[in-house]
Amino acid sequence: MGWLLITRFTIKEAIRRRLFLTMAILTLLMLVLFSLLIHEAIGRMQENNVANGMDPTLQTLYAGIAITILAMWLVYLIISTMTIFLTISMISGEIEAGTFAVIVPKPLRRAEIIFGKWLGYALILGAYTLLLSLAFMGIIYWFTGYWPTQAFAAIGMLEMSMLVLLGLITLGGAFVPTAANGVIAVMLFMGAFISSIVQFAIPGQDYTIQNITAVISLIMPTDAMWHGASFYLFPAAVGLLQGFTVSSVNTPFTATQPISPALLTWGVLYSLVLPLIAIVRFQRRDL
């Protein structure tokens, strides 16, 4: 059960590191400021609605939907940033620091070290994703009364996005130095987001762009996972009932369709197979 020891050790290490503490404090601060902001904004909006003879309840609900989308996109960005900064040195950093020199000769398999570290980070970041998502959605619900009917499906997609990024970083850590791994992770993450913007910015159906975007989604499925999450947060039907067009809710931040089963399967495989490749590589790597 060496992997369990490594998992516990990884969780302890992550909690003890100042990065985690800083992020925890900033997260709390952000939630407080967000609460104050939404309280003020919704209060003023309701006053205006009453003054203009509009139904404040319905307008508040619409505002809740819009705020949920934006807030959860922020959650997606925070989780991704946290994943990159917290895990970027999980393998290569330990090799470079020489700290594996006293762990690897111990009676445990190298696969247990990588699996234990991966699991430790997956649990921490999974818990953080869940708590942060629930905190934001809870605040929005408190002030606007909007709670996505498929909230946990949306959180599940955000968890998948985190696991995809973690899988990529685990793989990179077994092959390249820490700095190179960080550059690769950030570039691919940003590249996936930019491809969404490009697809949105080009009017009409350009199959070449769609194909390029599809390839980018396969290389880095994080943005596809976010779109999957956004669908569950903002059901297109709500917008369409209000007379919006499909394109008005189909933006770089939102989606009108759920993620396809094929892409979801790809995301699951991606987040599991990449760490397995990392394990195979690490078993043969000279330290």
Partner: peptide, 12 residues
């Protein structure tokens, strides 16, 4: 038992 040349341990 093994003592490596550089005592690089987890400082935290």
């Amino acid at each position: 038992g093994y003592l490596p040349e550089l005592p690089n341990f987890h400082r935290w």
